[in-house]
Design a binder for these strands. Structure first.
Lengths: 155, 155
DNA sequence: TATTGTTATACTCTATAACTATA
DNA sequence: TATAGTTATAGAGTATAACAATA
């Protein structure tokens, strides 16, 4: 309990006791991707979540905030400031819905569509650059396996 | 700018515009893993990061807090409360280092080694259960590709 | 009564700067 | 001067409850 220890020669790979876990490998890989992605999106003053929100709004114009929150897997309440920000930059509008005045139909503006297109091109480029260390087959396998897992994992 | 929209029949797969990105697939997959892992570790009153810290300390007894922070890729300052908690539960001790009295050698207690062993067994079981939807070959490929990416990605 | 968007709030996570004690 | 551990703090991110307007 009061042991005096010798300082060992501690170099790299200190996390080798965790690297047997796929979850750990996924976390480490994702943090690399996220850091590079954040740098990429900084050019457009977008965070990953605002990029995702804008991309979905451009792809599914007219969806409501609740639907978007579900798609992004975030709480409705936490989406509000994200939408505020995109709307404040005139990238989207909250359009009133005729049939149900509680809802807002989220619509991209022309500027929003243009920014989304440019940011998406950069995002594609970011992935191409970052995953260039993998072969085409490895990238495809990684995507396929991750999608299969998401679809079929029993939680 | 003041368009009145019809509410579209919005069902699932609203995120299909993002699923071309490997990073997005990784994030979605990881969030499933993390949720299940958190449930698994709750039995031991451990968070993922405290489990990781304890596992590394058991595997590399005597390492310092700075070394552990590097291994976990977190800030030294944010490690303090994690170590406080583990030490407060008598799972580890901060042993003085003879050669350098600034440093603490992190050593697992007997209780710490026992809890780590039990939690590790549960963690292995959690991965076995959760990734059962993948074939053995797919799990191995996923691990291999993620590791290769982490090792070779040019940031 | 239930739902949509919203506000308020609290809790965790993460990053930075500065302090202390040691080297 | 530099380093290890620590403290304080501020900014994100996340989760919950409750409210107003509307259904």
């Amino acid at each position: 309990m009061d042991a005096i220890a010798e300082a060992p020669d501690q170099t790299a790979e200190t996390d080798r006791h965790l690297s047997a876990f796929i979850g750990y490998a996924m976390k480490r890989a994702l943090s690399i991707v996220q850091a590079d992605f954040a740098r990429t999106l900084a050019d457009y003053d977008l965070r990953a979540v605002s990029f995702s929100a804008l991309s979905i709004i451009v792809g599914e114009p007219g969806l409501t905030q609740t639907q978007l929150a579900d798609a992004l897997q975030i709480e409705r309440s936490n989406l509000v400031t994200i939408i505020d920000e995109l709307a404040g930059r005139n990238l989207i509008i909250r359009a009133p819905v005729a049939q149900d005045r509680r809802r807002h139909a989220l619509m991209p503006t022309t500027a929003g569509k243009q920014l989304a297109a440019a940011a998406q091109a950069s995002a594609i480029d970011h992935e191409r650059r970052l995953f260039a260390c993998l072969t085409e087959g490895e990238r495809a396998e990684l995507q396929r396996i991750l999608r299969k897992f998401r679809k079929e994992a029993v939680v």
